[in-house]
Write a protein that binds this DNA or RNA. Structure first.
Lengths: 231, 231
DNA sequence: TGCCGATATCTGTGATCACAGTTAGCATGG
DNA sequence: CCATGCTAACTGTGATCACAGATATCGGCA
């Protein structure tokens, strides 16, 4: 195995097999919007960049392909799937249904979970209000808030399903958000987050569902309006 | 590559890479309840049985592990995950939410889709009423009916999520159903299926949701009552 | 200048080998 | 007869090699 200092820390820090680490590395970049739809990866290139052989990369990519986060056609380069507008509307509808349900379930959460949600809400709010927002950090904070809510729902199954959904929409959503400070400055997301937190605190399941649904719908409409999705 | 006649037909019939075929082979057996929770597989044994090298098996198993359908701990045999009762209640709750939503969405389906649902409903009804029911066939027919409904919902995303859920619950549910003619003879599932079909025909989303929810809940309660789930 | 085709380099797929950790069976001692 | 410890056969993991299909680049021709 080659030694590539840049990745040493990351790969050695995390636990598990090499396959697991490569998987997490790619998954993080996918949900964080560090890859654009249509981007191509090479097993050998990823392997070399991470200082491992192509075997762990193959298995990690295989897993991500099974989850629809990557597309692998025989003998062709692995690619981040392109998402057509119709497809994007479909996932958005499903996300509203499922993540909305999780938000509703989060209303029964205990104090610690609610404190965690509140903390993540504040992080995102602070980042949104900054004069020159750090967009990468905002994307991460947005994710942290949402998953604090979903974790509070107390369903490991639902959480796994939502993680899979984010893996698929990450490249589409976060890429655009990363490049466009406008929407963040508008504060729409901030308002929905605050509403969700308030609803969860008050135990009002319907309002929590609607707040998260509104947040998802808002981001989705923004992406669709930018019109960079094919078809 | 070895030639194992028993599997030749199946493997040559299906398309795609060897990995895809092995994946489908294992996935089918998983949702069909041909594996019991706790069963152990050996990469080499599966490879030999299917007449391929262990490489395609590795990738297929890797994908199934990513979906939670198989459990693979480093250096230990690959296993069908054991499901604790609490976990099973969790997936059941999630299934009711998600598959119920799909059933509701199926109410807008076109005539061809509804005809398909009706045909699958009839298949299952005939099998249920048989004097000596073919349980394996009944399990397959039940699956065919449910997926006809879910396909009619018209959401590829939702369908993929549901397939993943069935991959996880298949070993728990279908294994028991395969061994117990009693529940089938009771006709509870048959009644729920009929109710779902009628509701979808009438475009009554709420009733469709409740029928599918009832079916899922009924099967789940049966499994839980048999008390073979740990903890 | 623009199009087209041959080739060199890239891609993932599959097989095989080496290795270290796990497991189960068998022999040995109580 | 049972418990215990050792060993041998098993497990998945990772690396490397061979191969066939896709792709892009560069040269030649119209």
């Amino acid at each position: 195995m080659l030694h590539v200092p840049a990745y040493q820390e990351e790969l050695e820090a995390s636990a598990g097999t090499l396959t697991d680490r490569v998987y997490r590395h790619l998954a993080d970049r996918l949900v964080g919007g560090r890859f654009a739809p249509g981007d191509k990866l090479s097993l050998r290139a990823v392997a070399e960049a991470l200082g491992v052989s192509i075997m762990p990369v193959r298995e990690a990519v295989s897993r991500l392909a099974a989850e629809g986060a990557l597309e692998v056609e025989p003998k062709k380069a692995v690619a981040v799937p392109l998402m057509r507008a119709a497809q994007f509307r479909d996932v958005t509808r499903v996300r509203i249904e499922i993540e909305g349900a999780a938000a509703a379930m989060a209303c029964g959460a205990d104090r610690a979970a609610i404190r965690e949600i509140a903390a993540r809400e504040k992080d995102f709010r602070d980042l949104s209000r900054a004069r020159a927002p750090d967009l990468a950090a905002a994307v991460a904070a947005n994710q942290a808030f949402h998953f604090a809510v979903y974790r509070a729902a107390g369903s490991a199954e639902l959480l796994a399903i939502i993680e899979r959904l984010w893996l698929r929409v990450g490249p589409v959503i976060n890429l655009d958000l990363r490049e466009n400070p406008q929407r963040l400055k508008l504060g729409e997301a901030m308002a929905f987050h605050a509403a969700a937190l308030a609803a969860i605190r008050a135990g009002e399941a319907r309002k929590a569902r609607e707040a998260i649904a509104g947040d998802i719908r808002g981001a989705s409409n923004f992406i669709l309006s930018r019109g960079r999705l094919p078809e």
